[in-house]
């Protein structure tokens, strides 16, 4: 039995690596020099996390080669992310709602 194994070529790896390095410099530069606020929202942290998510996506898709992996592996990667979001959303919604007061309770 032969296994068909698809993987990125060297040029793709190098391009992805350079993009990751570029994004690292960008996140450092933006965090140190930009202080953008939109009302109470601090856009710096949103930008920093957005850049980190982009970098994570590149690492997962190309270095970890999830792009060419089986649907089963993709499902499990998605399940990991899904349960992480459940932890964030349910955990934090409990936390922020502890200070809510309801009339008559």
């Amino acid at each position: 039995m032969m296994t068909e194994h698809k993987m990125p070529d060297i040029k793709t790896y190098v391009i992805v690596f350079l993009a990751l390095v570029g994004l690292t410099f960008f996140t450092v530069y933006s965090a140190l020099n930009w202080h953008v606020k939109l009302g109470p929202l601090d856009l710096n942290i949103i930008l920093a996390i957005a850049i980190a998510c982009t970098k994570a996506g590149l690492v997962i898709a190309y270095f970890m080669n999830l792009k060419n992996s089986s649907k089963l592996a993709k499902t499990w990667a998605g399940a990991g992310l899904f349960f992480l979001l459940i932890m964030f959303v349910f955990g934090l919604s409990d936390f922020v709602s502890r200070w809510f007061t309801v009339e008559g309770w």
Binding site: E4, H5, K6, M7, P8, D9
Partner: peptide, 13 residues
Amino acid sequence: MSEAHVSDTHLPV
């Protein structure tokens, strides 16, 4: 970005 196709690795099963 292209991909290399590698087949025929013949691992022991």
